[in-house]
């Protein structure tokens, strides 16, 4: 077990390092650098741009820049964002930008997952217990409809109805619970659909399984058969599914964050990319890689708890 975790962590570190290399090179290959983009918006002369490049070390050889980047990241010095300047000096440490955005993204991700599960598991269970019933068919049709509408469009419909027409919720923003509801709802639709489908399919198979018949033949009640013997087995595929989705959510939902002006990690990354804000990009991307590594590891660890067939190997 310990050896397994160690191996996975080492491989994870390698993954993070590779993403660092790739992102470092990619942003430098993109046209324009932070100095010129900043200067372009400020009506300044060429000499000032040069002085910025020099100050930010962008005139150094690329290898040197990379070693400085890695050294800074390892020592936890993420530098200052190039986007926010007072009197030509960066004043926003990247770390404080990220720390400001992280809780928002985390709360949103956790709420979406929990909300979706609370809706999807009962829904999927009902469908699995009565396959082919009108309820099952109706659920399926609604799900297909939702799946075929892009997320941002669902968001726009939500705004049009809930905010503009009925004036129930603010159109966006961050801070109070009311402005939190729509981004959560908007993101949840897709997850509810996927989670319901998985629960329905997996539980449907388990309900027809031989061991459930054994459980019933023991004289156990329907409830015990379903919850003790059925759902416990369904948890394994559901955890896998949550794991694969959680990574995406924890690294920010770009469209939805932008649409509802709910500025989380995703929005931070997008604005950093358009500003060629190297320090921010170079910090956020390894963070995203690290989140995926950790979530995947957590999913694998949860198998140990849920599935004895893996535990005893």
């Amino acid at each position: 077990m310990g050896q397994f975790i160690g191996k996975r962590l080492l491989r994870g570190l390698l993954t993070i390092f590779v993403t660092m290399v790739v992102v470092f090179l990619l942003i430098r290959m993109a046209p324009g650098d932070p100095a010129s983009i900043l200067a372009g918006s400020m009506d300044t002369d060429e000499a000032f741009v040069e002085s910025l490049r020099e100050e930010w070390g962008l005139d150094e050889p690329i290898l040197k820049q990379f070693t400085v980047y890695v050294k800074n990241l390892v020592t936890g010095n993420l530098g200052y964002s190039y986007q926010y300047l007072t009197h030509g000096k960066p004043n926003q440490p990247v770390i404080s930008l990220i720390l400001q955005r992280l809780p928002r993204t985390f709360i949103l991700a956790a709420s979406v997952i929990i909300f979706s599960i609370l809706i999807a598991i009962p829904l999927g269970t009902i469908c699995a217990m009565k396959p082919g019933s009108w309820f099952d068919n109706l659920t399926f049709s609604i799900q297909m409809t939702i799946t075929s509408i892009p997320n941002f469009y669902i968001g726009m419909i939500l705004i049009a109805l809930l905010a503009v027409k009925w004036k129930l919720l603010p159109t966006g923003g961050y801070g109070d619970f009311n402005s939190f509801i729509m981004p959560m709802l908007c993101l949840s639709f897709r997850y509810i659909v996927t989670f319901t489908r998985t629960t329905r399919t997996e539980l449907g198979q388990i309900l027809n399984s031989d061991y459930l018949r054994t459980a019933k033949a023991k004289g156990l009640s329907r409830t015990v058969v379903l919850f003790k013997h059925g759902l416990r087995n369904v948890l394994i595929p559901i955890v896998t599914m949550i794991g694969t989705r959680l990574g995406g959510l924890l690294t920010g939902a770009v469209y939805v964050e932008t649409l509802f002006r709910y500025y989380g990690v995703g929005e931070l990354l997008i604005s950093a990319i358009s500003a060629r804000d190297y320090p921010t990009i170079q910090a956020v991307i390894p963070y995203i890689a690290a989140v995926f590594v950790i979530v995947n590891l957590a999913v694998d660890m949860s198998y140990f708890a849920l599935d004895p067939r893996i535990r005893k190997k």
Binding site: S209, D210, L212, T214, A217, K218, L306, D307
Partner: peptide, 15 residues
Amino acid sequence: AMIFQEPMTALNPVY
């Protein structure tokens, strides 16, 4: 009580 046909699948794998 019933003794089932499929010993490989008639027992719940997680208990």
